[in-house]
Design a protein around this nucleic acid. Structure first.
Lengths: 158, 158
DNA sequence: ATAGCACAGTTGAAGGTTCAAGTGTCGCCG
DNA sequence: CGGCGACACTTGAACCTTCAACTGTGCTAT
């Protein structure tokens, strides 16, 4: 009953390995840049971006989790840290006893604004400067495939 | 002197976001599968794979770090854990006082062999089953670009 | 020989992520 | 009304990774 196990062929091996190395490299370079220049990991930057785009720079934890794709637990721990840094503040939702609102502070906004240029530059260095317009199109197509029949997408700047 | 900051255009935004979500999804699914079915994170699986391919299923820490792309520290901690699991054993190199050899144990080999089929299946589900032959070619091309002028590549099965 | 330096590797602390379990709130059905 | 399941979130422990510091070894030039 044990099916024959379909291994990857040589070309797929190469592709898979290249994929692992390339994505790791991009993520590490991104994280390192943000950590060094802005004192935050990429995950926290993403949270700040979403918060910044939200209606009054605040939104519920659940919505924030949905937009960032983080687990409730991961987000909660992260917001603890962001709160300790003074970049975010939690408030009880006046309309609903069980939801919590995370609101970006002025300091949080400033931190994001000063982090953004360096981050975008790194994204260009790591990805877009290396790819032709055609390759960029291909990349989007491929990523869409990899995301099919999964959670829906959202929108973000910076 | 502050240069104008070249933001990403709308299409690049979409591509970037899709890239982040897609690669995160692949990595998470991979990690979850291995953790649940084989009791090890993907990083440790990679170490075992390299070790398994090495001449006598053993190699120096430095070489192993180079092949996996891990930092010396990360590798050392990981091998501590793998040693505690009984999957790897450290030995002093008889020919050189400052190098350490990491050797895969029988139990380690067994663990890898039983983990491999499920892992490969997940790689197919997450990536190759979703991409046409053409897209797979494109992906390899793109990853190569992202790896240009970086550390050199290596080879791995499974 | 030996001082100095680079290499090979380890360690501990700090921080991030996950997982499982826990708290409190809302909504709904009887 | 009274339960009770689902939802929104939080917590603590375990684990993984990073960073900076540290040990010990071999090389090389004087």
């Amino acid at each position: 009953m044990t099916e024959p196990v379909r291994w990857l062929d040589a070309e797929q091996q190469r592709t898979w390995r290249a994929f692992l190395w390339a994505t790791r490299r991009v993520n590490e370079d991104l994280d390192r840049q943000l950590q060094q220049d802005a004192g935050m990991p990429h995950a926290y930057y993403m949270i700040l971006v979403r918060l910044c785009e939200a209606p009054e720079r605040r939104c519920t934890m659940t919505e924030l989790a949905r937009q960032t794709g983080f687990s409730a637990s991961r987000l909660s721990h992260a917001v603890n840290r962001l709160e300790a840094l003074g970049w975010v503040r939690r408030r009880k939702d006046p309309h609903c006893g069980r939801t919590t609102l995370a609101a970006m502070t002025e300091a949080g906004y400033d931190a994001l604004v000063s982090a953004a240029p360096g981050h975008v530059a790194q994204v260009r260095r790591s990805v877009f400067d290396r790819l032709s317009a055609e390759e960029q199109r291909q990349l989007l197509g491929i990523c869409r495939r990899l995301l099919e029949d999964g959670p829906e997408e959202t929108g973000c700047p910076g």
